[in-house]
Write a protein that binds this DNA or RNA. Structure first.
Length: 503
DNA sequence: TACTTCGGCGCC
DNA sequence: AAAGGGCGCCGAAGTA
């Protein structure tokens, strides 16, 4: 792994990127210390309540009988033995299909899903709270300075792909998907006085950058044409659906359990299993209310199938169907992409390295998936990093009070002075959507950023998506209930007015 | 007590 | 041909 000495792009990017990231680290992000302390004690209490309820069950009786004083409710290893050992061995005899690399019972959420015990429901919930408490709350508290700021570190020297990483505390893995936990943790983060937090995300940057490498016309069309929707189209194939029958949740499953895994090198057996799990967990239904499982049954899918690599998939199983969808995905729909993957891999095997469009040579032993994914992951991040550098330059040149406070691979978080918000958003748009493409000539697809703003006095959890309403840079809330539009500053003032009226 | 490995899980 | 890419951080359990 090295920066090519004859390519200045890579060196300059890292040089300036480090300078900008250290500015961001020095700026830090403000924390509501009072909220944090209260959240820690209330979360500790909630954990204690749940754990004592768990200790008042037959499962725990058995557990203590077996492990005596060594019984530990936080031990996954003990849990595995209690749940999955046979009754003769003093277990509950639940079926366990998977083992870990070292031969233990798998005891992650997926392995526990089929077990319908209140004890297990509590265990999963308390696990999330434990994670938030130990990693997020205590991590923030440990790093909190006297002015109530944390200063997450952003590294450029760790990831093999030349992506960044973050630590102490890690700013790039803060809960967002689980609404309860996201609220708990993100409420810690607030803006400086007279400021609001603003987050801008590149929309589908990895797919866009991937299209730049593989130049697949079908993929490029999906990226370029806003009226097309790749995830919806794949969901239609996966689940035998018309556009009208499609729900957001079903599209979401196709996107995150098939399309992205396929791009990252997964295959039909893993995809089929995961999609099947997700249908059950989310109780997915068509728009007319028909359960998705029933709909699949009516389309000839009688079950998941064996999902065993040594057994040919049976016709009439979901596994077999996903195999078919996979085949058409790579052999028909994205065949140029597939050819690129083969060529890229073959060239790496011959030369022992590959070069990214952003000026880096990556060499050394890698497997096929790594060789195919690294250039995309790295280059996508470099689009973000270059943008970050330019935005910081603009802020400096204009003497603005707005500060950058974080970066999450494809998104930028700023603590924006309220009177500067429209200028800031204009800078972000110009850098990311116009100037970036001039700098990196290899970008042959449009790139766009999405925008979320936290209301005045709100927390990071309260961010709301806003969109440009027209050509004249007027903004409005995306989930528009009020039909207000105008400057971004006017919009957040409008939110504040609504809030005051409600109070 | 200090350290390592493992499994698990948070994010993109 | 192989079979999900990249990180950081936690607690449990084992070892020195």
């Amino acid at each position: 792994m090295s920066i090519r000495p004859d390519v200045h792009f890579g060196y300059n990017l890292i040089h300036q990127g480090i300078a900008t990231l250290s500015r961001i680290e020095s700026n830090g992000i403000r924390v509501d210390r009072r909220y944090l302390m209260k959240a820690i004690s209330s979360t500790e209490k909630e954990i204690a309540v749940i754990k004592s309820r768990m200790r008042d069950t037959p499962v725990w009786d058995l557990w203590t009988k077996r492990y005596g004083v060594k019984a530990n409710i936080d031990s996954d290893d003990q849990l595995g033995h209690i749940l999955f050992d046979s009754k003769e061995k003093m277990g509950l005899g639940y079926k366990s299909t998977e083992r870990t690399a070292s031969g233990r019972y798998k005891a992650d959420v997926a392995a526990l899903e089929g077990i319908d015990l209140p004890f297990i429901k509590d265990l999963i919930r308390v696990g999330k709270l434990d994670k938030a408490l130990s990693t997020n709350f205590k991590g923030i508290l440990r790093e909190l300075d006297g002015d109530n700021f944390v200063h997450p570190v952003f590294n450029l020297h760790i990831a093999r792909t030349f992506r960044s990483s973050s630590d102490n505390p890690n700013f790039q893995n803060i809960p967002v998907r689980d609404e309860d936990i996201a609220k708990l943790v993100r409420s810690c983060y607030i803006a400086r006085d007279g400021h609001v937090l603003v987050e801008n995300d590149f929309k589908g940057i990895e797919v866009g950058v991937s299209a730049c490498y593989n130049r697949d016309p079908a993929l490029i069309a999906y990226v370029k044409d806003a009226s097309l929707d790749m995830h919806r189209d794949i969901a239609m194939e996966l689940f035998f659906l018309s556009k009208k029958q499609m729900s957001k949740a079903i599209r979401h499953v196709a996107k995150n359990k098939f399309v992205f895994p396929q791009f990252y090198g997964s295959w039909y057996i893993a995809c089929a299993k995961q999609i099947w799990e997700e249908i059950e967990k989310r109780d997915l239904k068509l728009t007319d209310g028909t359960p998705l499982k029933k709909h699949l049954y009516l389309n000839g899918i009688k079950g998941l199938g064996a999902c065993d690599a040594s057994i040919k998939p049976e016709p009439g199983t979901f596994e077999r169907h996903v195999q078919e969808v996979e085949r058409s995905f790579w052999d028909v729909r994205f065949k140029v992409y597939k050819q690129w993957k083969n060529k890229w891999w073959e060239e790496y095997q011959r030369r022992g390295f590959f070069d990214t469009y952003t000026g880096f040579r990556i060499s050394g032993p890698m497997d096929r998936n790594q060789v195919i994914n690294y250039p995309v992951q790295g280059s996508a991040f470099h689009c973000l990093l270059w943008s970050l550098v330019q935005i910081q330059k603009e802020l400096d040149d204009r003497g603005m009070r707005t500060v950058l406070v974080g970066q999450i691979h494809d998104s930028i978080i700023a603590d924006v002075a309220i009177d500067e918000i429209d200028d800031y958003l204009a800078i972000v748009k110009d850098v990311t959507e116009v100037r970036l493409r001039k700098h990196y000539k290899w970008i042959n697809v449009p790139l766009s950023v999405e925008c979320e703003i936290c209301p005045i006095g709100g927390t990071w959890f309260n961010k709301r998506e806003v969109v440009i309403k027209d050509d004249s840079f007027n903004w409005k809330s995306k989930d528009d209930k009020h039909n207000w539009s105008g400057s971004a500053r006017g919009l957040i003032n409008f939110w504040q007015k609504l809030e005051k009226e409600a109070a």
